[in-house]
Every structure is written in C-alpha cells, then in structure tokens.
Amino acid sequence: MVGSLATPQGEVPLVKGHLGGRDRWGALLVRLGIGRMSYSVEPGLYAINHPGPDAPVLVTANYKLSFDHLRRHLQDLAAWILVLDTHGINVWCAAGKGLFSTAELVGRIKAVDLAQIITHRRLLLPQLSAPGIAAHAVRKQSGFKVVYGPVYARDLPAFLANNQQATPAMRLKTFTLAERAVLVPVELTIALKWAIPLSLVLLALRALTGAAGFWPTLVGQEFWPVAGLWAGVIAGSVATPLLLPWLPGRAFAVKGLLAGLVAAALLALTPLPRLDHWAWFFLTPALASFLALEFTGASTFTSLSGVKKEMRIALPCQIGAGLIGAGLWLAGRFM
C-alpha cells in the first residue's frame, strides 16, 4: 500500500502495480508450502495507479498471491480492484467452493458503495471465477454487468487494449511444465510431514530386530532401508507431475504406478536382503500410484466423475499392494 485515494465514499487504499521485496518473499514461502493457509488481504475496494471514475473494475479473491499476481500484471494501468472475501482462498478453488459467489460479489458491491464511486456499470471477473458466479443474476441483483476476462492475469493488458475482447487462447486453462513444476515443492512439503517420521519408525523397527542389538544396528544402518519410501515419494510427487503428459495412461493412478515401477526396478540395485526387495517392489509403486492420484487435486483438467471412477479401482489395488508389501517387510525382520 502506498497511500490512499479520496472518493465520494471516503478514502480507498492505493496500491502499486509492482511487487516489492516483501511480496516476493511471501510468495516464495507460500510456494514452499509455508504459511499458505493464512496469506490473505483485507476484502474491499483498492485503487491501483490513481484510477478515475471511468476506470475498469477488476474483481479478485482475498488470497494475497492472487491479489499480488493481479497487481504485478497490471503494472502501470490504472484500475479499481474489488477484493471479495474468499477466506484467503484463490479464485478458482473459491469459486468451486461457493466462496467466490454471486452473493458475495453483490454484497461487496453494496458494502463499498461501488455505484457511487464509478460512473460505468461493468465488472471484470477472472474467467476461472465463473463456476461460482451467475452473471445474469449479478446483473439483476446489482445492476452491474459481468464481463469475464482472460484465464491468466498476464493477458489482462492485451485484453483491456483489445476493447475487452479475449482471444480464443486467452480462454483456455493450460497445464504447462512450468505450471506443474511450481506445484512440486508444496507436494513435497506435504509428503515430508509423514515421510520423515515414517522413515525414523522403519529404521527403529529394523534396529529392534537387528542381530547386532538395537543401538549398534540403528546407528550402523545406511539410507537403503528407507530408500524405497523416498523413491515412492519422488516417483509420485515429483516425477509424475513433471512427466505427466509423457507417462502412459489416462488415469493418474496408472501414471504413478508406472513411475513407481521404474523406481522399484532401480531399487533392485540397492544392497538389501531379498525379502526387502520384494517388499519394496509392492510398496514403492503402491505409494507412487497413491501420491499421483492425490495430484488430481492440483491438476487443471480432471473431473470429479473421472476421479471417482479411477479411485474405485485404484484405491483397493493400492491398499492391497501396500498390505502385501508391509507383510513381506515385516517377514523380512524375522527371517
């Protein structure tokens, strides 16, 4: 925030069209999965680059990453930004959850008295907010016409310059390698929270049954006894997202399974007892397949009907393979 702008309805916070160091640092932390649940801005009306009463009004969510992303791409364009209360959730997810909604939008227009501040009656909404909005209902309830802008904020300057018309390409949600790669750190952060404790438990269990006694075995162990666990995490939460279009199969569970089988084949080269190799041959692909299935939620093209269908088949298989693998692993402790 760089000050405030006087309007007929009082002072409106004025923000910059460029990000500062703190905004970039905050975005980095969120991308690493740190504090991403409480990264929000106050809902309400903001002014960017001294807009006049005829400047466009852009509507967004009160997730700070969404707000900053919009600011950054507007650069030197003058506009109003109407921030809805979406409980700190991004535009698309908030629309899916009914938080970025017609009711919230109409209520926010009234709360800030938008009709008194601007002279026109058009609102620019991100296209991906459409699942939560009924444009015709907004018009009926508030008098404002909803115009759906491009999917990506980076296309906004071109969209505004082109008489608020989107090209067909601006209307499509992609899932490029870069878009997938940026999701990997969060996937990994989530996995670390259980994979580290589980690794310690496995190493301790192994030491308990070690021939040399608990402490010498625990300290003397190398990384190999839990390599299968980490191979599964990397296959499911790193390799599958990155290699998504090139992994065979349509179902995410199948893609993850194949990545996991490759990982399991590599594990055969590690120095472990034969029974442990068999155990990880089941455990690693099962884990990779499950984590890949979880990635459906971060992807941009899966349907609920499709996810349910693949889960009906994949979940029992993953659980079955996991139980067989766990049984073999335990048997290995007593052989």
Partner: peptide, 12 residues
C-alpha cells in the same frame, strides 16, 4: 445453482 459454501481449502 451455486455450490454450498464450505470451509477453508488448501487446494491450488
């Protein structure tokens, strides 16, 4: 119609 309002989310 619109989906019912839900709690906070981690998705995305």
């Amino acid at each position: 119609g619109e989906p019912p309002a839900r709690g906070r989310g981690t998705c995305g």
